[in-house]
Amino acid sequence: MLLTAGSAAHGDWRGLLLSGLAAAAAGAVLLLCWRFAGTGFGDVRMAALGGLGLGHATHQGLWLAFVAFTVITVTQAVISLMRSGDRQTTFPYGPALAVGFLLAATL
């Protein structure tokens, strides 16, 4: 809400549009993951709200965030499988999302 108000107040319509598109894309992807892979609602909300700030992220920050998210998620999956889990074992995406958003926002 504050990002929207700030972008509108400064006339940064491109940033506002990019932020909205990033939020919609992140929310849509994780909504699909929730529907078909059992991702929880907290993760979906975090993705949608975190996507609001990605309209101002750099390409390098986004790539590093994507790599960090992928590494953390794969590591969690491998650890779950090593602890006698199976393909239906759930694990939280929240930590990986938080690290990804923080990296993208700060770089």
Score class of each variant (00 low, 15 high):
L18R: 12
Q60H: 09
F41W: 11
H56L: 09
L30M: 15
A104W: 00
F69T: 07
M1L: 04
A26E: 04
V71T: 01
G53S: 08
D12I: 05
S84T: 15
H10I: 05
G55K: 05
L17R: 13
A5M: 04
G50W: 07
A68T: 04
L2V: 10
A104L: 02
T90N: 02
L81H: 09
H59V: 15
T58H: 09
A25G: 03
A25Q: 00
S19L: 04
W13D: 05
G50I: 12
L32R: 15
Q76K: 08
V99H: 02
A24V: 10
L30Y: 15
L81D: 00
Y93W: 12
L17K: 11
M46C: 15
S80P: 06
L49N: 05
G15Y: 06
H56V: 09
L32S: 14
A96G: 05
L64C: 11
P95E: 01
L52V: 05
T106V: 12
S80T: 12
L102E: 09
Q76S: 06
S80G: 09
C33Y: 08
V78A: 13
L32A: 15
C33D: 02
G51H: 07
V99A: 05
G6V: 09
F66Y: 10
F36A: 13
A9E: 00
D12A: 04
L31C: 13
G53A: 06
M1S: 05
G27D: 00
L52E: 00
M1C: 01
A22H: 10
A22Y: 08
A9C: 01
H56C: 04
A22T: 02
G6H: 08
A28I: 07
G27K: 04
G55L: 01
F66P: 08
T70G: 00
A47C: 06
G15N: 10
G94M: 14
G20V: 14
S80I: 13
D43W: 14
F91G: 00
L54V: 04
T58C: 04
A57G: 01
G42Y: 15
A105W: 08
G53C: 11
A25I: 00
M1P: 03
A37V: 14
H59N: 10
G11E: 09
R35K: 12
P95T: 14
T89H: 14
T58P: 03
P95Q: 07
F69K: 01
A77K: 08
L30V: 12
A26I: 03
L64E: 02
Q60Y: 12
S80W: 13
S80E: 07
S80R: 14
A23K: 07
L21I: 11
H59L: 14
A8C: 03
F69P: 01
W63R: 15
T89W: 15
T90D: 01
A37Q: 08
F101Y: 14
L31H: 14
A5K: 10
S80L: 10
I79H: 10
A65P: 07
A37K: 08
G20L: 09
H10C: 10
L30H: 15
S80Y: 09
A23I: 00
V67T: 11
A9T: 03
G51E: 01
A22K: 06
V29Q: 03
S19H: 07
W13F: 11
L103M: 05
A68M: 01
A5Y: 05
I72R: 03
